[in-house]
Amino acid sequence: MKKYCAYVLLGLAVISNAALAKEAPLVSIPTHDAFFNAIKAHCGKAFQGKVSKDNVGNTFGNAKLVMHVRKCTDSEIQIPFHVGDDASRTWILAKTGAGLMLKHDHRNEDGSFHSSTMYGGHTVDEGFPQVQSFPADVYSKALFIESGIAASTDNVWQMMIYPSRFSYRLIRPAREVQVDFDLENPIATPSAPWGYE
């Protein structure tokens, strides 16, 4: 009888674990979906941008700025951001099941992860179909403190998508920079950055 009970308990544990292993359904928030799909609609295209706001001046120098909506699934969009010949940055926009998450994937020249990578934030409200905000998350705040840039713990990243323009914006007290990309004039797509072949 003890052996039989052990088998029953083992079977229940296996069934329970299988149920837990199933992926939870993604929470569908109309404004998040509309925002995500508006960016996804540009998948495979690249666009040139220009700095429209920069209260400290010359953040990117005179480098050519290009975003490339390169790899898209139903839950993730990868957007390499090229600053001149530097292709080390990729924005990753993902559905998490509780909203949208923005991460910054930074790589070294050999494709390995930079010491300051995967920082970003998560939506805390429904936002708008055209605009979503991503306050710095706990991981990012710890990374910024460890890196000696504690002021960045107040970072809020914003992305804006309109029919003719996509904007990437960083704001915090005493800091604002925004790059606007012209969606009406796609350009030649740049080569894939490290880690995204």
Score class of each variant (00 low, 15 high):
128 F>E: 15
64 K>F: 05
58 N>A: 00
75 S>W: 15
120 G>D: 12
69 V>I: 10
46 A>Y: 14
46 A>P: 08
30 P>N: 03
26 L>C: 11
127 G>A: 00
88 S>H: 13
36 F>I: 03
27 V>H: 13
129 P>Q: 11
52 S>C: 02
86 D>Q: 11
55 N>H: 06
115 S>N: 08
86 D>H: 11
36 F>G: 04
124 V>P: 07
67 M>T: 05
44 G>D: 12
102 L>E: 08
54 D>I: 02
71 K>C: 07
77 I>D: 12
26 L>V: 13
89 R>Q: 04
39 I>Y: 10
120 G>I: 10
57 G>V: 02
31 T>R: 14
55 N>R: 00
26 L>H: 11
25 P>H: 12
67 M>I: 13
61 G>W: 11
128 F>K: 14
38 A>G: 08
78 Q>D: 09
66 V>S: 06
112 S>E: 01
24 A>F: 09
65 L>P: 02
64 K>M: 12
102 L>A: 07
84 G>K: 10
96 T>Y: 01
50 K>R: 08
58 N>S: 04
101 M>E: 13
76 E>Q: 15
40 K>R: 10
71 K>M: 02
114 H>A: 07
24 A>E: 15
54 D>W: 00
28 S>I: 06
78 Q>S: 13
105 D>L: 15
57 G>M: 08
89 R>F: 06
95 K>R: 13
19 A>D: 02
21 A>I: 09
102 L>K: 11
71 K>D: 14
53 K>E: 06
74 D>G: 06
88 S>G: 08
